[in-house]
């Protein structure tokens, strides 16, 4: 792919949103756009930026994720196998550790999450500590990805994990403080940034390609889904614990009646 073809296909990608924004502005609201020049130069930046990002994605992010999956599961790297023995799931411990580290480190530093957690601290009036919330989201995300890799190694159906997580989310939703619920659901979305999605996807597909007996279509997808679900669980869990501690400490402070 040359840069020119990428630029052209990127133009097509951007066409709908540009048509929608300008269409509604000029045909429905019928008022000229203020600072049209600035808007147009912004659109030019969007076009070039998206094209460059997509080229970089193909040359660096996808290959890096695939390479890690290949190297961490290659026979030279795994512990040597005794004569006639079969690979066990715990032989792949470096895979799990890698998944956990990638998940936790990308999430804890994520700018969008920092903004959201500060806002959450404000709404809660001090019961939620922004740093603790970030740790909760990061742990949830890291656990989700690690579970995703374990699932690929074991070859279990994705549905079981997702549906079990759904049940947990539903139970927690019914028992959590109401104000935390939208935030918890949002934190699931924030963890998967434009940079982490390709890396995680390439890791999952790479694992499903190299681990014997796995199939990329059946086993390779699903890492992103789990990475989005578990932060919801950990954030609601954290809110429940925070609320519970608040209640028990205020009970202790007030004199017994």
């Amino acid at each position: 792919m040359t840069l020119l073809t990428v630029l052209f296909s990127t133009l097509l990608d951007l066409l709908p949103i540009v048509a929608i924004i300008f269409g509604f502005q000029y045909l429905v609201i019928r008022r000229p756009i203020k600072q049209l020049k600035q808007v147009l130069s912004g659109l030019a930046l969007v076009l070039v930026g998206l094209a460059l990002f997509l080229v970089g994605l193909e040359t660096a992010l996808f290959p890096m994720g695939t390479l890690m999956a290949e190297q961490l599961t290659s026979e030279d790297f795994l512990p040597t196998l005794a004569q006639g023995a079969e690979r066990r799931w715990h032989d792949y411990y470096w895979v799990y550790l890698f998944a956990f580290t990638i998940g936790a480190s990308t999430t804890i530093a994520e700018p969008a999450l920092i903004a959201v957690s500060l806002k959450a601290g404000e709404i809660s009036g001090g019961t939620i500590d922004p740093l603790m919330l970030r740790i909760a989201v990061a742990l949830g995300m890291a656990f989700g990805i690690t579970l995703g890799t374990l699932r690929i190694v074991l070859g279990l159906p994705l549905q079981w994990f997702v549906l079990a997580a759904y049940v947990l989310v539903i139970i927690q939703t019914l028992r959590s403080p109401r104000s935390i619920i939208p935030l918890a659901f949002d934190s699931g979305g924030v963890t998967t940034s434009t940079i982490t999605v390709p890396i995680i996807a390439a890791l999952g597909l790479g694992l499903a390609t190299t681990i014997p007996g796995r199939d990329p279509i059946m086993d390779g997808f699903g890492m992103i889904a789990l990475a989005c679900l578990f932060p919801i669980i950990s954030v609601m869990g954290y809110a429940q614990i925070a609320e519970w501690r608040e209640r028990s400490s205020s009970r202790r402070e007030s004199p017994p009646s």
Partner: peptide, 17 residues
């Protein structure tokens, strides 16, 4: 390219869209 592209992309969004 990833960093440069994403930077221009987001900056352009903030200026334009």
């Amino acid at each position: 390219l990833v960093v440069l592209g994403l930077t221009l992309f987001i900056q352009g969004l903030q200026l334009g869209l």
